[in-house]
Amino acid sequence: MTADVVRSLVSTAWLAEHAADPGVRVLEVDGEAARYYDGHVPGALPVDWLDDLHAPVRRGFADAPALAALLGRLGVTPTTHVVLLGDAHNTYAASAFWLLRYYGHGPLSLVDGGRRAWEVEGRPLSTEVPEPAPADYPEPSPVSSVRASRDDILQRFVPGLPGTALLDCRTQIEYEGHGARGVDLPVERHRVPGHMPGARNLDSIDVLDEATHRFRPLPELRAMFADRGVEPDTEVALYCRLAERSSLLWFALHEVVGHGRARNYDGGWAEYGSLVDVPVER
């Protein structure tokens, strides 16, 4: 399969047929890789979302040199068709998809339904960890059109400039500022609960079928976004807390619906909710 015919969303049946193709590299991206070692799609390699895709010291995703080094270790070249799947509703795999797209990797697919669909269908799992020959992956250049920075958010989206929309991909409870998760202690105000002014709530899980974890039919997805003010020429910024759930919604909007004007704000609420003197609604 060449880059110009690669589909962003592939089925488990496609994966079963093509996982061993030369030029295809299957990566299982999990919150961490423990489940991978218990059994994975034959030929797949593990990617730990926390450890492999984030910078070791500063806050943020891996930078271009680190990503190039990772892909090289995984035997990936710029022409390798990278196929991603994972656990947790495929959110971590979608996050890896967004990151690779941001760094301009061309042939790229996400497996609809992720690891769960593969398992539910009773497809084979392997415990063998492949050892790919390292490849040379040149340092990539970012594609800024898929990413929203803090400045983008503050200057364009929060003020609600015409033709922009904000989507908050967290649960309704988080959106409304209730039920702080884990480290968020509202009383300390190090990160306040709430949402960005004007943001509409669309829980990322809602774009998936509850039973199969596959994306809902295209008309339903279109309606979900349209109901939240997304028109064909709307510039959309999406955020969650840590950018993995928003990556899933970004994938639904950008790759499945085909809305090219969608940006993932990877700073997420973890960043915005910590900023001093920015507007917050509850």
Partner: peptide, 21 residues
């Protein structure tokens, strides 16, 4: 403190598979 599982495995003398398990 921010250690990776792979780094922990190297330090503790386990394979990544053993460390994750």
């Amino acid at each position: 403190d921010g250690a990776t599982v792979a780094g922990l495995a190297r330090t503790a003398g386990y394979s990544p598979r053993e460390m994750y398990r």
